[in-house]
Amino acid sequence: MRMNRRGFLQTLAIGGGALSAPSFANARQDKALSPGALGLLYDATKCVGCQACVIACKEVNGMPPEFSDPDHLWDAPLGLSASTRNVIALYKEGGRHSFVRQSCMHCVDPACVSACPVKALTKEPKTGVVHYDAGTCIGCRYCMVACPFNVPKFEWGSAYGKIVKCQLCDHLLAKGEKPGCSSACPTGAIQFGGVQKLLQEAHARLKAAPGAYYPKVYGEKEGGGTQVIFLSALPFEKLGLPDLPDVSSATLSETIMHTTYKGFGMPIFLFALFAFIARRNLQKGKEE
């Protein structure tokens, strides 16, 4: 029994070690950008805040208005919500101001897709559009917890709500059209296209007018990269875009998961150990 106990404690310690400090031999890499990935380039310096993209998004996606004033005069969302997939917010400080567009970033390695327990959120392998299927969703809202940009929104007003988020107008893409927001944008602040091309374009703009921009393309590396990328004159944190590490949080989470549960080795080992010990102790109890 002494031996048993010591052995048990030793294995527990080893197991605990593996549980809490995964060896990164099993670490998965961030997923790579698909060559056919589609996305948007939002240039805050070109945005005039006309909100045509907000209206267009609502029209092409059949979204209801959202009120934030007591008289219900305007479709005035305060941010993304179950009835707003695309919104223009304003940052103002002293004499400087900048608009910023909020919508799904279509991450290269999306945390929401990694988090969803039932594959209701999927990343289209070719275009990289993160798609949501309400028929599959169980409404656990783990995607909302996981998303570093707080994009997926839940239909709180409904008795049987669903998650709502931008899907890059994939119903229009299927018809060969552009997403509603980029079609409506009168200044070219929202540009639709292949992500590789958009990145080139963004860097070209940075190079052409270095003084006009904050020297970074947001979304090139942030959180493992996003397919919706940003240019701005102001630091991106001020525009509500979090300062993310270059590794997707999905990578970290899955590494820990798969290290712990690789081939179900550790659980099976622990189970065998517990079963062996429990059986012995039960036998002993009977003998006594």
């Binding site: 917890v145 970290l252 712990t260």
Partner: peptide
Amino acid sequence: QSSLGSLLIIAGHK
């Protein structure tokens, strides 16, 4: 119980 903790790793900076 350990995974209840792992759940939050993906939430990152939040």
